[in-house]
């Protein structure tokens, strides 16, 4: 279907954005990369009164490191995320996730801010930023506020973003020598939304002891799902096949997946267990990996 009739305005700065937002009213939406928003217009499921194009606001661009924080501008495109050396060095899971998002042409337009604001339950980046314990920087006419990623996502396509607010950046604690990060997903075809996916971020000592763990699933619930029990099962002991098995066991209480066209909840639970092992196996001491 063709897009519904709507208005369009492009803004060059945040100040201009606040003005246009005030004038446009609550039915207007923010347009960033548009790779999900514009597709949904063809479903005529949403009919915004207008789209406010923020893609030329320079302040929303760029990747930088300050102290122990990696700041990723919200307009950073998936393709840029995938090739940015700072991202690769300080938040390797994001560099690993980028090629999993759809296809090159989509990655050339889609932005991290847009993906987080949409909060698609099967999307990679929301799970990654939750696993990284990142902070979502949100701005409005009234100023800036910082929301822990885990609090930002509030369910199916729902976030803490209030009317008049946009995401300006994501702040990620930089990886340390103890960091272990990986993302694993099961898709029917390359680039498809995941049947089940896992963003795993651990802190491990040299002896293998896990000091911190955040296992965050996607595609198995209403959003980025922190597996609290499974994560806890890993903490305080060296990572072994036994602790991984314990984490897998804990998923029964952590996840309550809905069925979809691929299959029922049991399929999702099973795949979640499988990818838990596949993700964590990569962090096992090489001696145990070989075993």
């Amino acid at each position: 279907m063709k897009w519904p009739a709507m208005g369009y305005a492009r803004v060059e700065s945040l100040d201009e954005l606040w003005q246009v937002l005030d004038a446009a009213g609550p039915e207007a939406q923010i347009l960033a990369g548009g790779q999900s928003l514009l597709a949904t217009l063809s479903f005529r499921l949403s009919e915004p009164s207008g789209l406010i194009d923020i893609t030329r606001i320079a302040a929303l661009r760029g990747v930088s490191v300050a102290g122990a924080t990696l700041r990723i501008g919200s307009l950073t495109r998936h393709a840029e995320l995938g090739r940015d050396p700072l991202v690769a060095a300080h938040a390797p899971i994001l560099a690993e996730a980028a090629p999993l998002i759809a296809h090159p042409a989509i990655r050339n337009r889609g932005t991290i801010g847009g993906s987080l604001a949409l909060a698609d339950p099967a999307a990679e980046l929301p799970a990654c930023v939750v696993a990284l314990d990142a902070t979502i920087v949100v701005a409005s006419r009234g100023g800036e506020r910082r929301v822990p990623a885990a609090d930002f996502f509030q369910g199916l396509f729902t976030t803490d973003l209030q009317p008049g607010e946009i995401i300006t950046a994501v702040e990620v604690p930089v990886a340390t020598p103890a960091s272990r990060q990986t993302i694993v997903e099961v898709t029917r075809r390359s680039g498809d939304y995941a049947m089940a996916g896992l963003a795993a971020v651990l802190a491990m000592r040299a002896d293998g002891t896990v000091d911190a763990a955040r296992l965050v699933f996607f595609g198995v619930g209403s959003g980025a799902e922190i597996a609290t029990g499974a994560s806890a099962a890993l903490i305080g002991a060296p990572l072994t096949r036994a602790t991984i098995a314990a984490a897998q066991g804990a998923l029964a209480d952590d996840l309550d997946p809905p069925g979809d066209l691929h299959g029922g909840p049991e399929l999702k639970r099973h795949l979640a267990r499988v990818i838990t092992a596949r993700a964590l196996d990569t962090f096992l001491a090489s001696a145990e990996q070989a075993a």
């Binding site: 099961v186 029917r188 049947m195 691929h262 299959g263 029922g264 049991e266 399929l267 099973h270 795949l271």
Partner: peptide
């Protein structure tokens, strides 16, 4: 022959 059907055939899921 979907993953769901193959896993069911294997008895992995019911």
């Amino acid at each position: 022959f979907t993953p769901d059907r193959i896993l069911r055939a294997l008895g992995t899921i019911a």
